[in-house]
């Protein structure tokens, strides 16, 4: 039992980096960016190829981050320079990435990292000898999530970060305040997908492989984590929100682990996640409706 929870927590922490990336586009830029489905694999592929070639796993993780940034940059250029709607730009990039990801993996659909030196084998060497791979994942995931949260918190408090938030919040206002909104959107998309790429790189090292189809449904998992985190842990301040995103990712993984344990076939996972997100997106509207009815604002009220 604890084994399941430890595994889920570790994986959740690694996914939390992706969740923060999804949050940046979905909440900060107000764009549903489907590039994520491809960029998570790009990160995984880039890291896996380097590690399989005997490269340093930390350098490989950095490469995953940079490769992810490049994918966001392309979506951003499609959207701002070619004026393709954001959703469609993301879809185009995602589809193109399918081919590119296979090229990164030198024509193969997957790369195995069996018995290679990964971030976790490195971390495991620093931990007491009783520790296992899941604990190494938790340690590495915690460290990474904390570092990403701190960096994101700092960045969005700077002048540049504020300008990106303004562009996502109110484009017209941002331009009238002299902000180059196109550049801000490109930067925001690049940053978001950089985090998603990094997350992909870390997940691949944990799973022991990169696979071209590992990204399918990842945007929905990211959204589910964002929403679960926001609802369960609150969004009072930005700091709180970041904490909630990490917790949301972990909770999602633990819930999934339990649902598996209860006997749900693995192939139903995506259906389950999609339904969770749909329900969670509808929830605020439903509660509003109820609040209205409770106030007696309904159409049938007779005075």
């Amino acid at each position: 039992m604890t084994g399941i929870i430890l595994g889920a927590a570790g994986l959740g922490l690694l996914w939390s980096v992706m969740t923060i990336g999804v949050f940046l586009t979905y909440r900060v830029l107000d764009i549903a960016d489907l590039t994520a489905e491809g960029s998570i694999v790009t990160g995984a592929a880039a890291a896996a190829v380097i590690i399989a070639g005997g490269g340093n796993p930390f350098a490989a993780s950095l490469a995953a981050f940079l490769a992810g940034a490049a994918t966001g940059l392309i979506t951003g250029l499609l959207h701002t320079k070619l004026k393709i709607p954001a959703l469609l730009s993301g879809i185009l990039c995602m589809i193109a990435l399918y081919s590119i990801n296979i090229r990164i993996m030198k024509g193969a659909a997957n790369v195995s990292l069996l018995r290679k030196t990964t971030v976790y084998t490195e971390v495991l060497r620093l931990l007491p000898s009783a520790a296992n791979k899941d604990m190494a994942a938790i340690a590495a995931g915690l460290l990474c999530a904390a570092a990403v949260c701190a960096a994101v918190y700092w960045f969005f408090g700077t002048e540049l970060g504020s300008a990106i938030r303004a562009a996502g919040d109110n484009m017209k206002m941002a331009r009238s305040q002299g902000i180059n909104t196109d550049n801000m959107i490109i930067m925001g998309l690049a940053l978001s997908n950089a985090l998603i790429g990094l997350s992909g790189g870390l997940i691949a090292q944990y799973l022991g492989f990169a696979d071209v189809s590992m990204g399918i449904g990842s945007i929905v998992i990211g959204l589910a984590s964002v929403i679960i985190g926001e609802v369960l842990f609150g969004v009072k301040t930005f700091r709180r929100t970041l904490f909630s995103l990490v917790c949301g990712s972990v909770v999602y993984r633990i819930v999934i682990a339990f649902v598996y344990k209860l006997g749900m076939p693995a192939s139903d996972l995506k259906l389950f996640t999609a339904m969770t997100v749909a329900a969670a997106l509808y929830l605020p509207k439903l509660t509003k409706k109820w609040a209205k009815r409770a106030k007696g604002g309904g159409g049938n009220a007779v005075g």
């Binding site: 960045f155 700077t158 002048e159 540049l160 970060g161 504020s162 305040q177 002299g178 902000i179």
Partner: peptide, 14 residues
């Protein structure tokens, strides 16, 4: 944001 309208926006505090 308005105060920085005519200035370069860098990595100083917002």
């Amino acid at each position: 944001l308005a105060y920085r309208k005519c200035r370069r926006r860098g990595l100083g505090w917002g």
